[in-house]
Amino acid sequence: MTTLHDEDPPLSEGQRLLTLWVDGALSPKERSAFDKAIAQDPALAAQAAQHREILDLSRSMQMMEPSDIEARRFWARFYNRSEWQLGWCLLLLGAATLLVFALWQLMVSDLHWIIKVGTLAVLLGSGILLWNSFRLKLRASRFDRYRGVLY
């Protein structure tokens, strides 16, 4: 399997100059010398033409500009994300606080045991579901290898 780290063989001087020529990065003097080399070497000329052809073909491809609908959806979701993150944090924090308080109140109250058991089950079920959502978010964040990589 090819990975990002499998390196290609190093370039010969001719290949290096060809790459620079295709990208228009040769100095006028180097370019003139390379043009002469192309004129004298049909194989080199064919290779240079093929590389140029690929560059031209790529640049003739249209950029994937989003449609109006996609752009509207993009911006709607974009600003929602910040609010969504803050909302989730506050919701989880508040829910956890209320859950603990409710459990405590349940234990010290004089309610019938059936109500206590039912309420306890509802509270524990809610707690498990909230914890599950939080753990999924935490896990997704922890395994984001590039989360801190900006430079």
């Binding site: 370039l11 790459t19 093929q50 590389h51 690929i54």
Partner: peptide, 15 residues
């Protein structure tokens, strides 16, 4: 140097 090498071989393969 690696950039140029990758670019050259990428164009070769794409062609």
């Amino acid at each position: 140097g690696t950039v140029m090498s990758r670019l050259f071989h990428a164009r070769q393969k794409l062609r």
